[in-house]
Design a binder for these strands. Structure first.
Lengths: 246, 246
DNA sequence: CGCTATCTTGAGTAGCGTCAAGTCATGTGG
DNA sequence: CCACATGACTTGACGCTACTCAAGATAGCG
């Protein structure tokens, strides 16, 4: 085999290995040593591409994989019998989705790409078996599940007790923080979801979301033009959102 | 040691061992064989008693244990900065609470007894270590965490999309089912929580909860007298609650 | 260029919240 | 034993927030 060919393969492999992934400090294998990282590497189906609008899984699908987001943004949602939608989360790079399916071996919500993106598939049975051998991985996985529960509780607090204004401010603050943590601008945000989807997340109608955006704009907190958002007064936004904290 | 003394000890031990616990088919060690069951037994601090109103843990407490409820009912709740309360769940025998604390090593919500009850404390570090050796236990634990996520998503759907009437019907149907699963009457229910606590769970004010109870009573769905509840028309109640299902 | 999807804005309304008064059961002290 | 206080609940009147319905604006797309 010629040398340049070998090199190509290595580059291709490197590009997608956990060890060289820019997300490794955000993703499941946080804190693993090189050897253990390789073992995790070996069970992952790396870099499945998703087009905007494409589903990762749907309610009722057999559960086999957890999905670690590498690139792009995704929403997870449930529909009730009447077709009402509740968005349970907007997810971005480094987050793990599909955790709700473990208990019933079937996905109980759906996940869809809001823009083009990439996902690493993690075979759950293999992850469980590996996490029996690597305590750090086990602990990390438990933290991820627990974090999901914590963030669900935050959303409950929002849905159960906050006003429309407080809900939107909380949503924007949270989005800004998470983008910042991933190296994006916390001020200039491209919204990958529609007003209706934001509403279905916050327990509001799309008209109410739109009105609140306009109100925040009038008050000089943000500038919105369709899906382009500029946060002009982070502090004021945070102050309104503060009420969702303990 | 005299025989009668020995017998006494055995009885005392039997009364609190997982292997003889009436909840073993509902609780964490579902499906374990006798040997593994004993190993789980050995790490558990059994039967801590709680008086009505007593806290199991509070926001900010160091996380050390998961808590398996043996007897009684408990609520888990969070307070936000303004003192608004969101109840994240009413929990009863066989349920595991404290799962939200894993990610931060601190409890992020509080748990309080709604009536006198008993709880088994499970040291989390020991549970993790044991679950590395007992795959069935590991799987079971993951199922419990995942079930928590699923039920949180149900509550989100309720809070985000349902009317007051639908919320209360869903609450009552769910309560009835869970009591039935534990061998209690699904029709004659003693409510261990106040109207305000129900409201803080359902995202409603206590007056609205009270009005909805009265409405259900007028319509012949239930009979309520303070905290004693009789379900007169299970089917009608289920029909109203149905909308919270996928 | 017109069609469609998405978003904004207005007017009117319904549902739930707020405030307040009253009931009832239980507990307390004289 | 009664007078009174207290906490939990119910009910009514009224108000406000967010919803509904509708019309119009704008960008993207075939």
């Amino acid at each position: 085999m010629p040398a340049h060919h070998l090199e190509k393969i290595n580059i291709a492999k490197l590009k997608v290995a956990c060890s060289t992934c820019t997300l490794r400090e955000l993703c499941l294998p946080i804190g693993l040593n090189a050897v253990d990282l390789d073992r995790v590497d070996s069970i992952i189906n790396r870099r499945q591409r998703y087009k905007s609008g494409q589903h990762v899984y749907r309610t009722g699908d057999l559960f086999q994989f957890l999905y670690a987001i590498r690139l792009g943004s995704f929403k997870t949602y449930e529909l009730n019998k009447d077709g009402r939608e509740q968005v349970s989360g907007f997810h971005m790079a480094g987050e793990l989705i599909g955790l709700d399916a473990i208990s019933s071996d079937m996905h109980v919500c759906s996940a869809v790409a809001l823009e083009d993106g990439e996902i690493c598939e993690i075979p759950f049975v293999k992850l469980e078996s590996l996490s029996r051998e690597i305590p750090t991985l086990q602990r990390q996985f438990h933290r991820f599940m627990s974090r999901e529960i914590t963030s669900d509780h935050r959303l409950m607090m929002l849905l159960g007790t906050l006003t429309a204004e407080e809900r939107l401010a909380t949503f924007l603050s949270n989005l800004s923080e998470r983008l910042q943590a991933r190296g994006f601008s916390p001020r200039t945000i491209h919204l990958t979801m529609s007003r209706e989807e934001i509403g279905n997340y916050l327990g509001l109608k799309l008209e109410t979301v739109s009105r609140m955006f306009s109100k925040f704009q009038e008050e000089g907190l943000v500038e919105v033009d369709r899906r382009e958002l500029k946060i002009k007064d982070t502090e004021a936004l945070k102050r309104i959102a503060e009420c969702n904290k303990p």
